[in-house]
Computed example of a mutant assay.
Amino acid sequence: MNSDSSGRIGRSADGNGRAARKTFGMHQGSGFLSTRQRRLAWLGFLLAAVQAPVSARLVDDSSWLFSLCVALMVATVIIADDAARRRPADAPSGE
């Protein structure tokens, strides 16, 4: 505990009762999808993911696999965009 008379919890190892300076988080990189494109991608993913099992139940052939492949491709794009958004803005894109 800090021996400061105000009762605040703080750093006590260095003997200085001053509050630590504020730090700023990393700047986030921007993805390659805009906000609207990202929302439409999520909508497309959800529609294709719901349509695949419904189609598999109602249709005798294997055409439902196409919906599943489309949903997986859209999910891959969303994941790649999310990874690009989480990368710091000054990080090289090749890593």
Rank of each mutant, 00 (worst) to 15 (best):
G94L: 10
C69I: 12
L33A: 02
G7C: 04
S30G: 07
P92E: 14
K22T: 08
D82M: 05
S55P: 02
F66E: 00
R18F: 10
G31M: 05
R38K: 15
A83P: 00
D60N: 03
A91S: 11
A13D: 13
S5P: 10
A83F: 10
E95H: 10
L68V: 02
R38V: 00
L46A: 13
S30T: 15
F45R: 03
D4Q: 09
A49P: 01
A89K: 15
V59Q: 04
R8H: 02
F32E: 09
R36D: 12
A48N: 06
R11Q: 14
H27L: 13
L47P: 01
D81T: 04
L72F: 09
R57G: 01
V54M: 05
A83W: 11
R86E: 14
L40F: 11
S12G: 07
R39E: 11
A75T: 02
G10M: 00
S93N: 12
A20K: 15
S12Q: 08
A49D: 08
V59G: 01
G94M: 06
R39C: 05
A56Q: 07
S3P: 08
G25M: 06
G25P: 14
G31Q: 09
R11V: 07
M26W: 05
N2F: 01
T76R: 11
S30C: 06
L68R: 02
G15W: 05
W42I: 10
F66H: 01
M73Q: 07
R85D: 09
S93F: 09
D90Y: 14
T23K: 15
M73N: 09
L47V: 12
R18G: 12
S63K: 00
S62A: 10
F45Q: 05
G31L: 04
V77T: 12
V77P: 04
T23F: 11
N16F: 00
A19H: 06
V74Y: 02
Q51F: 00
S55R: 02
R21M: 05
D90E: 14
F45L: 09
G94P: 01
L68N: 01
A13H: 11
R86G: 11
C69W: 09
W42H: 14
A80E: 12
G7Y: 00
S5M: 09
A84F: 07
Q28A: 15
A41C: 12
S93G: 10
D14T: 15
A41F: 11
R87N: 06
Q37C: 08
V70I: 12
A91W: 15
V50N: 08
G29H: 06
R39S: 11
G44T: 06
M1F: 02
H27D: 13
A48Q: 02
S12R: 07
Q28N: 14
A91Q: 14
A71C: 05
G94A: 10
S5C: 03
W42S: 03
S6I: 03
K22H: 14
F45K: 03
S12D: 11
A84Y: 08
A41Y: 12
S34Q: 07
G31P: 05
A89E: 10
Q37N: 10
W42R: 15
G31T: 11
D81Y: 04
A89D: 09
L72K: 03
T35D: 14
L65Q: 13
A80D: 13
T76K: 03
R39M: 12
L43P: 03
